[in-house]
Each structure stands twice: as structure tokens, then as C-alpha cells.
Computed example of a mutant assay.
Amino acid sequence: MKKLKIAVFASGQGTNFQALADAAADGRLDVDIELLVCDKAAAPVVARAEQAGVDVYVFTPKAYPSREAYETEILAELQRRGVELIVLAGYMRIITQVLVEPFYGRMINVHPALLPAFPGVNGIRQALDYGVKVTGVTVHYVDGGMDSGPIIAQRAVEVLDGDSEEALRARVHKVERELLPWVIAQIASGRVELNGRQVTVAAEAMRSEG
């Protein structure tokens, strides 16, 4: 069978990108990572992609008059390569309708909180400041709002007494690196169905998650 072609958008360290690249390399994830899209040439994720043999599309946002302008160029590149799924994995820029409309239902994001709680930046810090006992990870479709798209999967992470932001972040990111490849695998195998705000994952897939 033809592998699902994905593009990963990332801006920073790239640990989620690495988790996807490793899963694809060892056969746990049956996809083709066609492209990394990054808005920072010096970001460590760029070196990770090059090491994994993944093509990189780096752009400088300030060189364009608007978000729509650079997204138009990115869209053309994605379409040229036949990309079928966009994965936002630590991409720190707002996505406009230029990408949302053609990729609606084919663009997902991983967020370090149990949405709809603590959307936006610093979800882990927000959870600590609020004093919740449980936070977690959400993978959701992108609809153009602030982490407001339909939720595909969530996994909880306990907040321990005396947790530092660094300690909680390490546990949350570990779960991100487990949940994101799992969700992509379900999408690639056709087990995920989007109907309005409701997302259904096939029962056999949910059982296999463990």
C-alpha cells in the first residue's frame, strides 16, 4: 500500500519530529515524512531532519508582507509534493485559512494540556499556576482558532505535589512522543473519522493503544 505522505511543521528542538522519524524508520509508523517546514533556520529540528534524510523547507517570516504570503508559498510546495497530512509539532506560528481551508481534516496539532483547558502558549505553566491535579496532552484537528479544533485523542498526566515546570514538562513531552505517532498511525490506517466536532477512532485501534 502507498504510504501516507506527511509534512511536519516545527519551530524548536524537534523532539516530537524525532519521535515520528524514529517510528517511521523502525516500521512502527507506516508513513512517508515528505518534508519538515520550519520558520527558524537555526532551530535544532532542522539538524534532526537533515540527519533523518528528510527534506527541509525553511522560511523567514519577516521576509514576507503577511502570514498569508508565506503560507501561499508553503501550500504550493505541499501540493507539489502530494502531502496528505500536516502535523504541527511545536510550530509556534498562527495558521491562517490559506492552509486551514485546503487541509481541513488533514491538519493536526499536539498541545501540552487537556483542551479546552489551557490553550495557547505555555500550557504547562498555565496548568501549574492554576493548581490542577491532572493535566496532559491533546492531539486535535486544526480549525484556525487557538487550539480549538475537534479533539482526536487525549492522555492524562498527573501533576505531582511540588512539581517544577521542568519536571512536569518532561513527563508531558514523554506522553506527546507516544500519543502523536499513535494518532498518526490511526489516521494512516483509515481508523479516524471526523464528523463535525465529533471524532471517532475505531474500537480496535483504541484497544491496541493499551
Results as ranks from 00 to 15, higher is better:
residue 82 G to F: 05
residue 114 L to H: 03
residue 139 V to I: 04
residue 144 G to C: 05
residue 159 V to K: 09
residue 123 G to M: 09
residue 61 P to F: 12
residue 132 V to M: 04
residue 165 E to S: 04
residue 140 H to A: 10
residue 156 A to G: 08
residue 91 Y to K: 11
residue 130 Y to V: 14
residue 135 T to M: 12
residue 57 Y to C: 00
residue 181 P to G: 13
residue 154 Q to P: 08
residue 137 V to Y: 11
residue 70 Y to C: 04
residue 170 A to H: 09
residue 207 R to H: 00
residue 108 I to R: 11
residue 104 Y to C: 09
residue 57 Y to Q: 02
residue 167 A to Y: 07
residue 17 F to N: 02
residue 190 G to A: 02
residue 189 S to N: 14
residue 210 G to H: 00
residue 42 A to Y: 05
residue 47 A to Q: 07
residue 133 K to F: 07
residue 116 P to I: 09
residue 123 G to L: 07
residue 11 S to A: 11
residue 14 G to F: 10
residue 67 R to Q: 11
residue 10 A to E: 14
residue 155 R to H: 15
residue 35 L to Y: 10
residue 30 D to P: 12
residue 194 L to F: 06
residue 2 K to D: 00
residue 208 S to K: 12
residue 102 P to H: 09
residue 51 Q to N: 11
residue 181 P to V: 11
residue 169 R to I: 02
residue 139 V to C: 04
residue 88 L to M: 13
residue 102 P to W: 11
residue 30 D to E: 15
residue 20 L to S: 01
residue 88 L to P: 07
residue 36 L to W: 05
residue 147 D to C: 10
residue 148 S to T: 14
residue 31 V to P: 07
residue 92 M to S: 04
residue 110 V to R: 02
residue 77 E to N: 08
residue 121 V to A: 14
residue 80 R to N: 02
residue 111 H to D: 03
residue 96 T to A: 03
residue 21 A to E: 01
residue 49 A to T: 05
residue 176 E to S: 03
residue 150 P to Y: 01
residue 38 C to G: 02
residue 175 V to F: 05
residue 21 A to Q: 01
residue 45 V to Q: 13
residue 179 L to F: 04
residue 55 D to K: 13
residue 114 L to N: 05
residue 20 L to M: 06
residue 49 A to I: 05
residue 79 Q to S: 03
residue 188 A to L: 00
residue 20 L to T: 00
residue 60 T to G: 05
residue 162 G to Y: 13
residue 24 A to G: 15
residue 161 D to P: 14
residue 66 S to A: 06
residue 136 G to C: 12
residue 19 A to F: 03
residue 8 V to Q: 07
residue 168 L to Y: 10
residue 130 Y to D: 13
residue 109 N to K: 13
residue 51 Q to T: 14
residue 101 E to T: 08
residue 198 Q to M: 05
residue 184 I to L: 06
residue 24 A to R: 15
residue 170 A to K: 14
residue 56 V to G: 05
residue 32 D to N: 14
residue 127 A to E: 03
residue 38 C to H: 04
residue 147 D to R: 09
residue 196 G to A: 08
residue 45 V to L: 12
residue 94 I to N: 06
residue 89 A to S: 10
residue 179 L to S: 03
residue 149 G to W: 01
residue 152 I to C: 06
residue 32 D to I: 06
residue 46 V to L: 13
residue 118 F to D: 01
residue 143 D to N: 13
residue 58 V to D: 10
residue 95 I to R: 03
residue 72 T to A: 10
residue 30 D to H: 15
residue 83 V to M: 10
residue 130 Y to W: 15
residue 166 E to G: 08
residue 150 P to W: 01
residue 166 E to K: 15
residue 203 A to E: 15
residue 200 T to Q: 14
residue 179 L to M: 06
residue 52 A to W: 00
residue 160 L to W: 15
residue 166 E to Y: 10
residue 184 I to Y: 01
residue 144 G to L: 06
residue 32 D to C: 14
residue 68 E to M: 01
residue 110 V to M: 03
residue 72 T to G: 01
residue 161 D to S: 08
residue 119 P to L: 03
residue 101 E to Y: 01
residue 130 Y to C: 14
residue 4 L to E: 09
residue 78 L to R: 12
residue 55 D to I: 02
residue 159 V to G: 12
